Computed example of a mutant assay.
Amino acid sequence: MPEAVHIEPNPGRGPDLQRIMTDVAQGDQEAFSVLYDAVAGPVFGTVRRLLRDHAQSEEVAQEVLVEVWRRAAGYRPERGTVINWILTLAHRRAVDRVRSVEAAAVRDHNAALLDRTPEFDEVSEQVEARSEREQLQRCLGSLSEIQRQSVTLAYYQGLTYKEVAETLSTPLGTIKTRLRDGLIRLRDCLGVTV
């Protein structure tokens, strides 16, 4: 339930809003002009406290005052003072605007996320690449330890055959044989045709 803003009536000061509201309800434009002058400041203040943005506050305050003109016949004195009724309308309208702005921000954020969503081709390529990496890992696992070390050093770390031989303290000819045998096994495991 929205928080109502209460302003105590000042007998003898300012216009009789109850009487003026009765005239406004009957379509009296001059009475509305007097009502407008009396309540525009408090309406703007109420709205401004919630919205904080000056331009939006002015816009919402105008909407509230138009609503007062249109709904004047619906005002019931037994439910509260004129100013409280008007400020309750203002509070509700400001809360609606805040919710509307927040919802728009969420929609904009979601739309931006959709714009950044990769197209189908990119997604399928990523899935395919991941699948190929997983298959390569399985095939590397099928090599002997020394073949896997040799292939990894030569092809993933970029070492030359001589550097692989030095790193593994193994003769160069043995490294070449292990690499050749390991690559043949990888080719067969991956289903690559030459």
Score class of each variant (00 low, 15 high):
residue 1 M to E: 13
residue 2 P to Q: 08
residue 3 E to C: 02
residue 5 V to M: 12
residue 6 H to Y: 13
residue 7 I to E: 13
residue 8 E to Q: 10
residue 9 P to K: 06
residue 9 P to H: 00
residue 10 N to D: 09
residue 11 P to Y: 01
residue 11 P to M: 01
residue 12 G to W: 00
residue 12 G to L: 01
residue 12 G to E: 01
residue 12 G to K: 03
residue 15 P to A: 15
residue 15 P to I: 07
residue 16 D to L: 04
residue 17 L to Y: 05
residue 18 Q to G: 03
residue 19 R to Q: 03
residue 20 I to M: 07
residue 21 M to D: 08
residue 23 D to M: 11
residue 24 V to M: 10
residue 25 A to E: 14
residue 28 D to K: 11
residue 35 L to Y: 09
residue 35 L to C: 03
residue 37 D to Q: 13
residue 40 A to H: 04
residue 42 P to L: 06
residue 45 G to I: 10
residue 46 T to A: 12
residue 47 V to R: 15
residue 50 L to D: 07
residue 51 L to F: 08
residue 56 Q to H: 14
residue 57 S to K: 09
residue 59 E to W: 04
residue 61 A to W: 10
residue 63 E to C: 00
residue 63 E to S: 07
residue 63 E to K: 14
residue 64 V to A: 06
residue 66 V to K: 15
residue 66 V to I: 14
residue 66 V to M: 06
residue 67 E to R: 14
residue 67 E to Q: 10
residue 70 R to S: 05
residue 74 G to R: 13
residue 75 Y to P: 05
residue 76 R to G: 03
residue 79 R to Y: 05
residue 79 R to L: 10
residue 80 G to W: 08
residue 84 N to S: 14
residue 86 I to C: 13
residue 87 L to M: 12
residue 87 L to F: 14
residue 89 L to A: 10
residue 89 L to Y: 11
residue 95 V to P: 00
residue 96 D to C: 04
residue 98 V to T: 14
residue 100 S to C: 07
residue 100 S to T: 05
residue 100 S to V: 01
residue 101 V to D: 12
residue 103 A to Q: 15
residue 104 A to I: 09
residue 107 R to E: 13
residue 107 R to L: 09
residue 108 D to H: 03
residue 108 D to S: 04
residue 109 H to N: 03
residue 115 D to V: 10
residue 118 P to C: 03
residue 124 S to E: 15
residue 127 V to T: 14
residue 127 V to L: 15
residue 128 E to Y: 15
residue 129 A to N: 14
residue 129 A to C: 05
residue 130 R to Q: 09
residue 131 S to L: 07
residue 132 E to R: 15
residue 133 R to A: 15
residue 134 E to I: 02
residue 135 Q to R: 10
residue 135 Q to M: 09
residue 138 R to N: 11
residue 138 R to D: 11
residue 138 R to I: 03
residue 139 C to M: 07
residue 140 L to D: 02
residue 140 L to A: 00
residue 143 L to R: 03
residue 144 S to I: 02
residue 145 E to S: 12
residue 147 Q to R: 03
residue 148 R to T: 00
residue 149 Q to M: 04
residue 149 Q to A: 07
residue 150 S to H: 05
residue 151 V to Q: 02
residue 154 A to S: 13
residue 155 Y to C: 08
residue 157 Q to E: 13
residue 157 Q to W: 09
residue 158 G to Y: 13
residue 159 L to K: 15
residue 160 T to Y: 01
residue 161 Y to Q: 08
residue 163 E to T: 00
residue 164 V to E: 02
residue 164 V to N: 06
residue 170 T to G: 11
residue 170 T to N: 14
residue 171 P to V: 09
residue 171 P to S: 10
residue 173 G to H: 12
residue 173 G to P: 04
residue 174 T to F: 09
residue 175 I to G: 06
residue 177 T to G: 15
residue 177 T to Y: 10
residue 178 R to A: 03
residue 178 R to H: 12
residue 178 R to E: 11
residue 181 D to I: 06
residue 184 I to C: 07
residue 187 R to Q: 01
residue 188 D to Q: 05
residue 188 D to Y: 03
residue 188 D to F: 00
residue 189 C to N: 15
residue 189 C to P: 11
residue 191 G to H: 05
residue 194 V to E: 12
